[in-house]
Each structure stands twice: as structure tokens, then as C-alpha cells.
Nucleic acid binder design. Structure first.
Lengths: 213, 213
DNA sequence: GCCAACATACCGACTGGTCGGTATCAATAG
DNA sequence: CTATTGATACCGACCAGTCGGTATGTTGGC
């Protein structure tokens, strides 16, 4: 109900969107279970009545937030500059550089909403887990073609791994980097790991013949 | 208080230990915030009075569980067979193999308690975050000497990365692998990522430059 | 007796969720 | 032009149940 089509938000710029934006901030700070509906309402500056007018339950907001996260990040990465490189490997490495660039500000600003949510809800709220899964795997799927093209360009066959698995591995490193960053309360460990990831990709694609910077 | 020395459990095999064991299982399934004290008591088969006799608060149990996790995993990895290799690189790769071997059973069986907890508590419960940080960084610290020895054996200097950062990177990959596994409800993505990690280490230490062995 | 180790009953604050109501706008009829 | 209808957006008091935590036992070893 409520919103027949979950578009980017043409009709009303108000309560529903404010709640989703508040969801991004609050859930990334305190987790899904640690976030209360009242808190969400307070952060969004709306009342509880407005909340349950737009979302039939707290879990429904979790799903909607994950979906909105997919849209949001989808637009962000679609418009990122790394797609402009002619060489597919440069596009892949450019993606890593872009992810590294995004690691700034406070922890709740650069950590991943769906990675945070799925940790707590994978068993208790399958609907949220599915939405988080769709977000992560959908994002990874945008990387796979460039990786595959790079593999083809380097004549790589029978590698023992697939473009899809490497795309997922980049997400694994990023998600893990967020966890270590939270534990250390510092972004530096995340940056180091992204550097290790880039080094891995560089080594992978440096055939015996060719050289790599 | 309560337990002056948190030994492996010689004095009382009862309520406190049962609660910690229940904490492992329940928190890994539902997260820290999603776990209630009543649930913990039910899972441990003790009453609420017993809970608050041994832990002054739910947060105190979180800290104790993280500390106990450090002990538990410390003993597990200390007695693992990968230390027996003569070559330091073999010990490091053996560690990766061992981690891969541990990826079996259901998700709550092989995922990391402290990685799960720190996601939700890094801002709201600093004491838990610190305990989780100590657990992760302490574990990484057990790997660093072998990595450093392997670097020395291969005559690696000015690599642009340190043994410590690579040790932390292994933890990043594992933590991230758990998140993706939860999202996909499958262990295979975690296994693939651990394989990528091993491939990275293998490539790193097979530089064509110098060989000292 | 005494104290640690539990058990039972209970509390107040808070939780997700409900419900009757209001404000606003568009369409339609008279 | 007004009146009516109906749909949507939002308000905020309220509810029943749950939460972490406490107060008061009871038991058993030393």
C-alpha cells in the first residue's frame, strides 16, 4: 500500500523521504535492532503517526531503506568517473580508487547500511536480508563485466576464479574494512585494506610477460 | 567482580559459563541488540537472578563474552596444526587453509561473535567495542610475526605495506566474508573470498625479484 | 553462622503498533 | 460559486506487552 511505486520521490519530498534519510543515519550509527521507531521519528522530525502511515512496520522501513540504499548507491556509482577509462582494467582499478576516496568523514558517513543491517537480521527478518542481498549482489554485478573484459583482454582463461567471484571479493573486502574500522575507531585500517585489494588486482592482471606499475 | 580471575573455567562450570556459551550462540544469531536477557537466560537454562548475579548489566555480559571469545579462539588457533610448518610462509598459508576449514556448519556456527557485536555497539557501547577490538587485533597480532618472517625470508623490503597491515587484511577479508555469507545465506561466497585471499598472499610472496629462502 | 550461588516475583521505562482525528487538495455535482 | 465526497498525509494520545534491572528470598557448602 501507501506508495504504489517507489520512485526516486517525485510527488512528496516529505515525511517518507525524511524517514528514509533518518534511517540511513541512525541505523548506520546504532544498528537496526538498536534503532527505535521513536528515534527514527525524532531524527526525521516527524511524528509516529506519519511513520506508520508510510510503513506498515519497523521491518517494512528496513526493507524500504535497503531498497532506497540500492537506488542511492546505484546513482552514485553510475555517475562516478571511473567508467570513462578505455581499458577495462583501468575501470576496475578506478572503481577501487573511487571506493578509497569515499572513505572520509565519520564512520556512520562512509559505512554500508545494508552490510550493517544484514548482520543483525539475516535470521530474524528474511525480508530485510533479501533486500540487503539484492543491494550488495546488484552492486557487485555492475563490476563483473569490466572484470570479465579485463580478463579477456589479458587472455586469462582457466584462472580458477570467475569475474563474479572477484567482484564479490571486492565487496567482501569493503564490508570487512568497515568492521575493522568500527573496531579500531579509525579509517586507516580500511584504507590499508583497500590498498591491499588494489594490489591484489594489480598482481592478478600482471601476466608473466607484462609489466605493471 | 564476581569472578576475580576469568580462567578457562576451573572453579564453577555452571551459570556464568552457560550464559557465556549461550551468548556465543544467541548473539551470533540475532545480534547484540536483538538479544534479550530473558532469551539468554532461557538458552542457558538459568534464571534472571543468576544472570544479574554474575553480570552487572547486559553490556557487562557483552564485554565478558568478547573476552571469553578471545580466550576461546586464542586456544583454538594456538593448538592448530599450521604452526608446525618450518617455512614461515607455509605457516601463514596454513592459517588461511585452517580458516577455510572452519567454514562449515550453519552460519551462526562459523561467524565471528566480536565482528557481529562491534557493528552494533561501536558508538553506543564503547566498552564492548574495546573488547571486540582487542579480540580482533590480538588475533591479528599472532599472525604478524610469521608474515614478517616470510617477508624477511623473501628479502622483501620497501614493499609499501607492513606485516601488521597484511595480518589485519586477513581479518578484514574474513569479517567481510561473513557478511556476504549472511546476505547470501550461503558459505560459498565466503570460501571463494578466502581463496582469493590465499591467492593474494601467494602472489605477494612470489615476486620475481629476489629470492633468499 | 555466613556467604556465594542461585531462584522468584516484581517494577518502571520503554517498545512497536493502533486509533480516532485533522488538514489539504481534487473531483464532481448542483 | 458552494457543497459534498473521497483520498492522502499527517498528528499525537494511547495501549498492551517487553525490556533491562532490582528486591527478596532459598539453598548448600565451609
Amino acid at each position: 500500500m501507501s506508495n504504489p511505486k517507489a520512485d526516486t520521490a517525485p510527488t512528496n519530498p516529505s515525511a517518507r523521504d525524511k524517514l528514509l534519510a533518518a534511517g540511513f543515519a541512525v541505523i548506520r550509527s546504532k544498528g537496526y535492532s538498536g534503532t527505535t521507531v521513536d528515534e527514527l521519528c525524532a531524527a526525521a522530525g516527524v511524528t509516529k503517526g506519519a511513520f506508520f502511515h508510510h510503513f506498515k512496520s519497523k521491518e517494512a522501513l528496513g526493507v524500504a531503506a535497503a531498497d532506497y540504499w540500492s537506488e542511492f548507491t546505484g546513482a552514485l556509482f553510475a555517475s562516478a568517473p571511473y567508467h570513462d577509462h578505455a581499458d577495462p582494467l583501468d575501470r576496475v582499478l578506478g572503481y577501487i580508487d573511487f571506493r578509497r576516496l569515499l572513505l572520509s568523514g565519520e564512520l556512520p558517513d562512509y559505512t554500508c547500511l545494508v552490510g550493517t543491517m544484514v548482520q543483525e537480521t539475516y535470521l530474524t527478518a528474511p525480508a530485510i536480508r533479501d533486500a540487503c542481498h539484492a543491494s550488495i549482489s546488484g552492486h557487485a554485478r555492475t563490476l563483473a563485466p569490466d572484470i570479465q573484459a579485463a580478463m579477456d583482454a589479458h587472455g586469462m582463461r582457466d584462472t580458477g576464479w570467475t569475474a563474479e567471484s572477484l567482484a564479490l571479493h571486492t565487496q567482501v573486502v569493503l564490508q570487512g574494512a568497515f568492521i575493522l574500522a568500527k573496531a579500531e575507531d579509525s579509517v586507516s585500517v580500511a584504507i590499508d585494506s583497500v590498498d591491499h585489494l588494489k594490489r591484489y588486482l594489480t598482481l592478478l592482471f600482471s601476466q608473466p610477460e607484462e609489466k605493471v606499475s
